[in-house]
């Protein structure tokens, strides 16, 4: 397949949009519905990425790809889900500040482990040996196919989130976020609900981390910077944290604008790419967050509208 027309940076830009959208959608279930401000998104992302990477590269499997790949990616997803249960158990009954510090601390711990456990992760030098579970002819074609597969996974996450809004489970999450003692008095096991929420969403974040690792092919602790959490958080709040499409709209406007428009189409001096652009990116995301909180606190799409949703589901 001739893909000369396609810029490799463009594939990477769209891939980032897709992955951060997926993270933002999962964060939406936590923050938008259950009002749990998880600042450790990249921790779960990193657990998935490194669990997959270490298992794939370091373990001598009796079978090859695609089974080796699939088993390892499933294990990475599971490991992230289990870490979600542990973190959820630790922070589930804490207030907002406790959740913030606990999740941020977890992400920091994952970053430090990725750096210090050199035998497993290669430390700061990183770990190579990851590859796509297929070869359709050329790096660019493989990357494009991986982008499509990842987009399909994120499409699945969109569908799940969309359905959650229309299910008794979504109603329970909103209730837990709105008034937890009242939900408990109605017999709802709110702690267990949050634990399951952490398990499922963290597993999803881990799967996205593993998929991100495959695209990178070389895992470094610098992949686990706080910028990923911030991108997902800023995009979600910008788009509308309580709306299904909030994360996607927010990511397109932030990551899309910067990683595609600015980096590919604006005449930016070449020397800016390594140092100045990442800093400018964080500064612009931060400014966008401040502006949206000042002028449109519920985000571009606005607040949740259960009244409209209930009318559409069950009539007047």
């Amino acid at each position: 397949m001739n893909l000369d027309w396609l810029d490799a940076f463009l594939i990477y830009g769209f891939f980032t949009i897709v992955v951060v959208s997926g993270l933002g959608l999962l964060l939406h279930l936590q923050l938008g519905l259950a009002r749990i401000a998880n600042f450790g998104v990249v921790g779960f992302f990193g657990i998935g990425m490194y669990s997959f990477g270490v298992l794939y590269v370091k373990v001598d499997w009796p079978f090859g790809d695609p089974w080796q790949f699939l088993v390892c990616i499933a294990a990475g997803t599971l490991a992230a889900g289990l870490s979600g249960v542990v973190v959820g158990w630790l922070v589930g009954d804490l207030n907002e500040d406790g959740v913030l510090v606990g999740t941020l601390g977890f992400a920091t711990a994952v970053f430090i482990l990725a750096t210090t456990e050199k035998e497993l992760t290669g430390g700061a030098q990183g770990m190579g040996g990851l590859q796509f579970p297929y070869d359709v002819g050329g790096v660019k074609a493989n990357e494009l196919l991986w982008l499509v597969i990842t987009a399909a996974v994120v499409g699945g996450i969109v569908f799940y989130v969309w359905r959650v809004h229309r299910s008794p489970y979504g109603r329970l999450l909103v209730a837990v976020g709105s008034n937890e003692p009242l939900a408990r008095s109605l017999g709802k096991p709110t702690f267990r609900t949050k634990l399951w929420l952490f398990a499922v969403t963290s597993a999803g974040m881990g799967l996205l981390g593993a998929m991100y690792g495959v695209m990178e092919r070389f895992l470094r602790p610098t992949n686990l910077g706080v910028d990923i959490t911030l991108a997902a958080m800023v995009a979600l709040v910008l788009g509308g944290s309580a709306r299904v499409w909030g994360a996607v709209v927010g990511v397109v406007l932030t990551v899309g604008f910067f990683d595609i428009i600015v980096q590919n189409y604006l005449p930016v001096p070449v020397e800016w790419y390594s140092q100045a652009l990442p800093v400018m990116r964080e500064a612009l995301f931060g400014a966008a967050l401040i502006l949206v909180l000042m002028f449109r606190p519920f985000g571009i799409l606005g607040d949740m509208r259960r009244d409209k949703l209930m009318r559409s589901l069950h009539g007047d």
Partner: peptide
């Protein structure tokens, strides 16, 4: 529940 409608609240 400030985010739930009356129907929501009763179905919950």
């Amino acid at each position: 529940f400030d985010k739930l409608t009356i129907w929501d609240s009763l179905l919950l």
